[in-house]
């Protein structure tokens, strides 16, 4: 179960942010923003090598005392960030990966929506529900 999910645009601005506990959003935003440093660094170094068969999943970005932060980058430089509680041992790499994949397909759906303008913040209710389901692992 993830505690926070964020979708960051290619210009590094937040497009979607969701926390299980809305009161913690500010703190999570700072954490997610800081983790973008690692994402940027990973993108810079991997891009120089083989960029055609790039793995979208970036793995763990930060391991803080309380939380672990994972990253995933689409080919269009849209970043997905998932924050997990450090004490949560049930989630392994594979589960995180599949969460990212589901998130990616949800994102693809929202981009296909003709009423969504790429680059805007995502405010679709159904998207919100779907993401929350992914976070809580009910799908």
């Amino acid at each position: 179960m993830a505690v926070c999910v964020a979708i960051i645009g290619k210009d590094n601005s937040p497009k979607y942010f969701c926390c299980l506990n809305p009161d913690e959003e500010l703190g999570f935003q700072y954490k997610v923003l800081s983790s973008l440093d690692v994402v940027e660094e990973k993108l810079n170094t991997t891009n120089k090598g083989t960029n055609d068969l790039r793995e979208l999943y970036l793995g763990m970005l930060y391991s803080l005392e309380t939380h672990k932060i994972y990253g995933y980058v689409t080919n269009t430089k849209i970043k997905f960030i998932i924050v997990v509680d450090s004490t949560n041992m049930a989630l392994r790499d594979n589960e995180i990966r599949s969460m990212f994949r589901k998130l990616h397909s949800e994102y693809a759906d929202i981009v296909c929506n003709p009423f969504y303008i790429p680059g805007d913040a995502i405010c679709s209710k159904s998207f919100d529900v779907n993401v929350k389901n992914i976070m809580t692992g009910t799908v």
């Binding site: 937040p14 500010l26 935003q29």
Partner: peptide, 10 residues
Amino acid sequence: SEQWWLLLTD
């Protein structure tokens, strides 16, 4: 410039 409005507001 990175449009983190919530943080900016803070």
